[in-house]
């Protein structure tokens, strides 16, 4: 069924609000943002926001779900062509890099966000852990002598990446943590992994 002009305008305004909220969240932080900040940045009235979202909490959930999906999808697309764990870790960081300011906010704030946003966070991590498990098992699975459980290896990697992002002001004040540390993060992690295996 064809949409009316009014329906199309409503959709466009909602898209504008989601994109604007994403940009403001990336810059100011999610919990630090007020409805008026988004309204001002989007050039709409305060009331317009509540035509599209029942609350700021609902808006946060929708923005995190939408951009969480985009991050997960990007990771998935990049990871599909990963032949080795090294390729996959680079693909993971490549997916994050495109959304780095927003993803960093999620790393720092996700425990404080509404429950729906927390679920989106789990979904983003699942897209990565899915490919991580496939590639790891293909590359090392039959010959894993490290004795380290798969989820511990995954969490060590995530812990490393998230630590750098969380403290990005100290590691890369210009705001490009992944671009600057991508190679050394991947190389160091792989050396640890392979070194640990060799000693056994």
């Amino acid at each position: 069924m064809k949409k009316t002009v009014r329906e199309l305008q409503k959709e466009q305004t909602k898209e504008l609000l989601l994109k604007t909220a994403y940009e403001v969240f990336s810059k100011k932080g999610i919990m630090n943002t007020r409805v008026s900040d988004i309204a001002q940045a989007a050039g709409v009235s305060h009331g317009t926001i509540f035509v599209h979202f029942r609350s700021l909490e609902a808006m946060i959930e929708e923005v995190v779900a939408l951009y969480g999906q985009k991050i997960a999808m990007r990771t998935h697309v990049l990871a599909q062509s990963s032949g080795s764990l090294s390729d996959l870790l680079h693909a993971h960081l490549g997916g994050i890099m495109e959304f780095e300011p927003f993803y960093t906010r999620l790393v720092i704030e996700n425990r404080l966000l509404p429950p729906g946003a927390r679920d989106s966070w789990i979904s983003i991590q699942s897209a990565v852990s899915f490919h991580f498990s496939l590639v790891y098992e293909r590359e090392f699975g039959h010959n894993d002598r490290s004795g380290i459980l798969l989820h511990m290896l995954f969490n060590m990697w995530m812990g490393l990446v998230h630590y750098y992002l969380q403290n990005g002001d100290l590691f890369a004040p210009e705001g490009n943590v992944i671009g600057r540390y991508q190679d050394i993060l991947v190389d160091s992690y792989l050396k640890l992994l392979k070194g640990g295996r060799a000693e056994k």
């Binding site: 679920d119 991590q125 498990s133 511990m152």
Partner: peptide, 20 residues
């Protein structure tokens, strides 16, 4: 899957699986 690949607590994983 959540337990095996991310190490979540079983109850937390079960609850997250229901919601997702």
């Amino acid at each position: 899957f959540l337990i095996r690949t991310q190490g979540l607590d079983r109850q937390a994983a079960h609850a997250a699986a229901i919601r997702t």
